[in-house]
Simulated scan of single mutants.
Amino acid sequence: MNSGSFEHDLADVQSEMIAAALEYVDGRASDVYVYCTTEGGVFQYDPFFVVDGKVAERHKIAGIDTSIPRQRALVKYGNQQLLRLKDAAKKYDRPLPTQIKLHYVVADGSLDASYEYEMQYTNHSSLTAADIVQEWQSEISDSLVD
């Protein structure tokens, strides 16, 4: 990241995360969603998609290679981007978001992003990052049938 600001580095990381997810889904998605967490020292990148009007997790997309090695490569790349973001936050003395939610609309190229800086799940006795992703997927799924 040879840039002059945290915001530029953040935009670059987000772009890389979306590009990797788009490549993975091989043009089949109308929307790409990315959930990221850096909470508690755990870095997790978890993309999911809207394919044929339905929410589809990365291992449940028909017509593409969803093998474990390919999924691992995608997640590893996304996690590497989160580590780049951590380095940028340190470099520019900025707080690292504990949670990032991205929504990319393929048709018009628009990107919505939300960031949280407070703990989202590690301060709860039973809530996990997976629970947050599943809740978000349910919200998206419910909105598709309205």
Rank of each mutant, 00 (worst) to 15 (best):
Y24I: 08
E39K: 05
I18C: 00
Y45F: 15
G40E: 06
E7K: 12
F48T: 08
E23K: 12
R28C: 03
A21G: 04
D9W: 06
S30A: 07
S15I: 01
E16I: 00
V34P: 07
L22K: 12
G27F: 13
S15T: 13
D12S: 06
E23N: 10
M17P: 10
V50R: 06
V34A: 03
D46M: 13
F49I: 10
E16M: 00
G41W: 06
Y35C: 10
V13P: 12
V13A: 11
E23T: 09
A29H: 09
D26A: 14
Y35F: 15
M17R: 09
D9Q: 11
V25N: 09
D46E: 14
A20M: 07
V25M: 06
E16W: 01
D9A: 13
T37S: 14
Y24V: 08
Y35W: 12
T37P: 07
Y45W: 06
L10Q: 08
V13R: 09
L22T: 11
S30M: 00
V13D: 06
Q14V: 06
L10G: 03
K54H: 15
G27A: 04
S15G: 14
A19H: 13
D46A: 14
D31K: 13
V51Y: 12
V25Y: 11
D9Y: 00
C36E: 09
G40D: 05
E23L: 12
G41F: 04
G53R: 07
Y35H: 11
E39S: 03
V32H: 01
E16Q: 11
A11I: 03
V25S: 12
E23V: 02
A11N: 13
D31L: 06
V51K: 01
G27C: 08
V32D: 00
V25Q: 14
F49Y: 15
L10Y: 09
T38A: 11
A29V: 05
L22Y: 02
F49L: 09
M17Q: 15
R28W: 08
D31Y: 10
G27T: 12
F49W: 02
T38E: 05
R28S: 07
Y24T: 07
K54E: 15
F43T: 00
D52G: 12
K54D: 13
V32G: 04
E7Q: 14
C36F: 02
R28V: 02
A19E: 07
H8G: 04
S30G: 10
A11C: 01
G53H: 01
G27D: 12
I18R: 00
V42T: 09
T37I: 09
A29Y: 04
A19M: 06
E16R: 05
L22M: 14
E23P: 01
V25E: 15
E16T: 00
Q44C: 13
V51N: 07
G53Q: 02
D52Q: 15
E16G: 04
E23R: 12
A11V: 02
L22H: 06
E7M: 07
V50H: 06
Q14M: 11
Q44H: 14
F43Q: 02
T38S: 14
V32S: 05
S15F: 04
D46F: 12
V51H: 08
S15A: 09
K54P: 05
F49R: 05
K54Q: 15
G53W: 03
D46G: 08
D26M: 08
E7F: 04
Y33C: 01
V13I: 15
G53I: 04
F48G: 07
F49N: 08
F49H: 04
T38D: 07
D46W: 09
K54L: 14
E39D: 11
P47G: 03
S30F: 01
A19G: 09
